[in-house]
Amino acid sequence: MFEFITEEEERGQVGIGTLIVFIAMVLVAAIAAGVLINTAGFLQSKSQETGQQSSKQVSDRLQEVVTVGQVSGNEVTAVNVTVTQAPGAGEIDLENATINWIGPSGTETLTHQRASGTDWQFNTTAVKNTDDSTTVLNDPDDRFNIDFDLDATDGPGNLQEGQSVTIKINTMSGATTSIRFTVPESLGQKSAVEL
């Protein structure tokens, strides 16, 4: 009728309760560790992706080799900017680039002649090309001319003596190269002039 609980039975029940609490704590710790590991892996992949994009914005730039103006009368009617990859740059496709032309008659945003976009466009011609790519700088030895026909429809018009222009070439990766040139004060009887 009456049951008496001895001291040994009480100790056994307390031990089982402690074991259950311990197992629950281990399970919670394991779940928390799994969540932390997954979050750390996600953040690491995001930071690597961001680092690569930032690196491309800094390194995938163009470098000016020379800028030449074609002269007719006492005006520059066309400009050719020869460019190459900047040191450490990856592959740069000029067809996907945009150029901001900031000149005496205002600002224009140009796209490549092969791309749909603005009315006044720029064109590219290979000067030195290590492969058959028509618009891609993918070797440090590659050289391309970026051609601006100032007399073209919707173009800014010819440049006069002493006028300055700044162009900003934005590559697909977001890198920007600024080039500033000035027409000499006297063009004389020259057919071409370095700007």
Rank of each mutant, 00 (worst) to 15 (best):
F2D: 10
E10S: 10
G12M: 13
Q13C: 02
Q13N: 06
V14N: 13
V14F: 05
V14D: 13
V14A: 13
G15K: 14
T18K: 14
I20D: 13
I20G: 10
F22E: 10
A24D: 07
V26L: 13
V26S: 02
A32N: 06
A32K: 01
A33V: 00
N38F: 04
Q44T: 00
T50C: 01
Q52G: 03
S54I: 12
V58Y: 01
L62I: 00
E64K: 06
V66F: 02
E75W: 07
V76P: 06
T77H: 07
A78S: 14
V79I: 12
N80G: 11
N80F: 09
V81M: 10
V83D: 15
T84R: 09
T84F: 00
G88W: 00
G90D: 01
E91D: 07
A97T: 15
A97Q: 08
I99L: 15
G103H: 11
P104W: 04
P104L: 04
G106E: 10
T107Y: 15
T109I: 13
T109L: 14
T111F: 13
D119F: 05
Q121R: 09
V127I: 14
T130V: 12
D131L: 03
D131Q: 09
S133E: 11
T135K: 00
T135E: 02
L137C: 02
N138Y: 01
P140T: 01
R143A: 09
I146N: 08
F148G: 12
L150Q: 12
L150A: 06
A152S: 10
A152I: 12
T153R: 08
P156G: 11
P156A: 05
N158F: 06
Q160D: 02
E161K: 04
Q163W: 02
Q163E: 12
V165G: 10
I167R: 02
I169N: 14
T171Q: 07
M172Y: 13
M172Q: 14
S173A: 14
S173H: 12
G174A: 08
S178E: 14
I179Y: 09
T182G: 11
T182V: 09
P184M: 06
P184I: 04
A192M: 07
